[in-house]
Computed example of a mutant assay.
Amino acid sequence: MPADQPPEHAERRTQLQRRTATRTALLAAAAELVVETGVRSATLAAVGERAGYSRGIVTHHFGSKRALFQALAESSQSGFVPGAGAMPPGLGRLLALIDGYIRRMGDGAVAGRAFLLLWVEAATSAELSGVFRERDDGFRADLRGDVAAGIAAGEIRADADPEATAVAVLGQLRGIGMQQLLAPGALDSPRLARAVADQWLRALRP
């Protein structure tokens, strides 16, 4: 420890690291349970037990099952397509998101599968519907921004409709994700990712 760093500062960092590690373990346990036993079986008690903690620690970190699933949805989508967040809005980022999303969903990762299962459950769950409407609204806003920026830069044809394109792209990605969820390994995800990205390139460029 540096000489000018007080011991209590090091202790606070240790507590933060422990809290972060606990939260990460709880989210991983929640994702595993959603995939293995379904959304409704992933209770706070079951999540705590799977992660090696008590139900109380889950409640302490998240407060409710809804908040737990909201955090799981956010963590599943955070950095979902590596590098895309650093790209400027426009056609390049739009194509990177499409390609990366399909590849990521096709890799069979537990977090991605859990997200899709929660998204489906949200259609009939008042507890989850608001959470996933917000997630989809945010995704569509990002896609709209890419289309609008592409039009302004001359990369995308001027008559493209940002709103309609965003809805169509998100619908296609979610639909492909569901097929990957139902038939893991049956789709050639890298090949599909290239084909879909190329489809949108040809549809949008001037």
Score class of each variant (00 low, 15 high):
G52K: 06
G38R: 01
L68Y: 04
S64A: 09
D107W: 06
G100M: 06
P206F: 01
V196C: 01
G52T: 10
W119Y: 15
P6K: 05
E127C: 06
G79K: 01
E36G: 00
I98G: 05
G92E: 03
T20I: 09
A152H: 08
A46E: 11
Q199I: 05
A67T: 14
R55W: 08
S129R: 15
W200R: 08
G85R: 04
L187Y: 11
R55T: 10
A28W: 00
F139S: 11
F139L: 14
Y101T: 15
L181Q: 08
S125Y: 05
A73I: 00
A149V: 06
G38C: 03
A148E: 14
L91K: 10
P7R: 04
L170D: 03
G112N: 08
L33T: 00
P82D: 04
A86Y: 01
E32W: 04
A28L: 10
P2Y: 01
A152W: 03
R205Q: 15
L16M: 11
A21D: 13
T24V: 12
G92L: 07
D107A: 03
L16I: 12
L182R: 12
P82S: 03
S78T: 15
L182D: 13
R157K: 13
I57W: 00
A158M: 09
G48V: 05
L33M: 05
V35A: 11
Q5Y: 02
W200V: 09
R93M: 09
T59A: 14
I98E: 01
T20M: 10
T124Q: 14
A193C: 09
L192F: 08
A164E: 13
R140S: 02
S41G: 15
G92K: 00
V169S: 04
T124D: 15
P190G: 07
A111W: 11
T37I: 10
P6I: 05
G90M: 02
L91V: 07
E127T: 03
L97E: 05
G108M: 06
Y101A: 14
V39W: 05
E74Q: 12
R174M: 08
A126W: 10
Y101S: 14
V58A: 11
S125Q: 02
L27Y: 05
P184N: 06
A67R: 13
E8C: 11
R55I: 00
E127K: 01
G108V: 07
G48D: 01
Q70Y: 02
V147I: 13
M105S: 11
A10V: 15
A10D: 14
A67I: 00
R55E: 15
I151A: 07
L33E: 04
R18E: 12
